[in-house]
Nucleic acid binder design. Structure first.
Lengths: 204, 204
DNA sequence: AATTATTTGTACTTTAAAGTACAAATATAT
DNA sequence: ATATATTTGTACTTTAAAGTACAAATAATT
């Protein structure tokens, strides 16, 4: 962990704020996707030069990994927040609806959830970063499963519920929504899909 | 349409069968994905030289488009075949289960459905091929919708069913399954997800 | 046998993107 | 003031993949 305290440091000072730059880079990655984003796209968006990016963040992969970190703490933090909803249905509704909201909020042509899209990127697979993403998505699934187990205890979901498969079902919808969005589905359709899933939800 | 009739043609004969080569290329694309497949991967798999590929198929994009044509006529022809199932539930069961079957049948690490994965490829987007894929997927959705409309007429699905949203719901699951598979879900999980969706299917 | 059309195989060019060397600039520390 | 540490900006190298030029080979046609 780096401290942000401005303990006066030697050498020429950096022209840009690292965290702000990461957020800008994240925006570019969200709009174009990892593979389609070149470092020149990044430097243009940031208004800084190539070697500055390398000095500050390492390389393209490392930059992406750090931008993804901010994505997890910001845009998709809802994936854990929603677990505190009162019922399993509310959890799922909040999760999927917020997902739709995020996806369509990207300007121009939505490209779906950055984490989901990146989880199948061959370039990121080669870099080893994809595994981190897949692991992160898996952890989210584990959290949901635990929440569903609690829902079973609370009489919210039926006793014979397979909480793991029910979780996989929900995340399958979540991932599918991401694809649908980048295939051109509009917000109304995406919301309608969620409604259908909720209509036959097996719990409260 | 080219005729395959061996009307003796001038010049040195081709060493390889075009359709067989396409199927081999398709296999490579299915295993590695479009972006991660280099033309060198292709020439190695086919045992032919670079310029022969260009002479026979045009370029990498054109080769992919032709391989995809065979994918549509072969591996994913089931997407239309299943429409003749007796009930809407049978249609959906067959569609999703056959999808799982196809996805896990790819050796080693499954990469999901080639069409689905390619539908979000930025490289193919730039080439304009992605739009064809998206259009193809949309046409499949239209076909499903029509089938569901028939199901409504037959009293299979309730009268107040929104057949288009129900279709989108099904294809969202379909696309989601593809992602789940490339994220590491196993066959048992994928089948279980389908079962959950079927359990609450609103029709016969 | 000579001609013509086409494929093959070797070796090349092109291109685009990642990554870097290095001098000039700008801050703090002594 | 001088030394030291770090960033900046210009211009370069590297790399990997797509795509191509061209002579040799191999078939049918005349």
């Amino acid at each position: 962990m780096e401290t942000k305290a401005s303990t006066k440091v030697l050498g020429r000072p950096r022209k840009f704020d690292k965290d702000l730059a990461l957020d800008t880079a994240l925006k570019v990655f969200m709009q174009k996707g990892y593979e389609a984003t070149s470092l020149t796209d990044i430097t243009k968006a940031l208004g800084i030069n190539r070697p500055s990016v390398y000095a500050a963040f390492g390389n393209k992969e490392a930059l992406f990994a750090q931008a993804l970190g901010r994505y997890i703490q910001g845009p998709i933090a809802y994936l854990n927040d929603v677990l505190s909803e009162k019922t399993s249905r509310d959890v799922v509704r909040a999760m999927l609806m917020k997902s739709v909201e995020l996806i369509v909020s990207c300007a121009e042509q939505p490209r779906g959830c950055l984490a989901v899209q990146s989880s199948i990127s061959s370039e990121l697979a080669a870099a080893g970063i994809q595994q981190n993403i897949v692991n992160g998505l898996h952890q989210i699934e584990v959290n949901i499963k635990n929440r569903f187990d609690r829902a079973i205890d609370e009489g919210d979901l039926p006793n014979d519920t397979d909480s793991w498969l029910l979780t996989k079902y929900v995340t399958t919808l979540h991932k599918g929504l991401s694809i649908q969005a980048s295939n051109g589905a509009n917000e109304e359709e995406l919301r309608g899909i969620v409604e259908i899933a909720l209509k036959s939800w097996p719990g409260k």
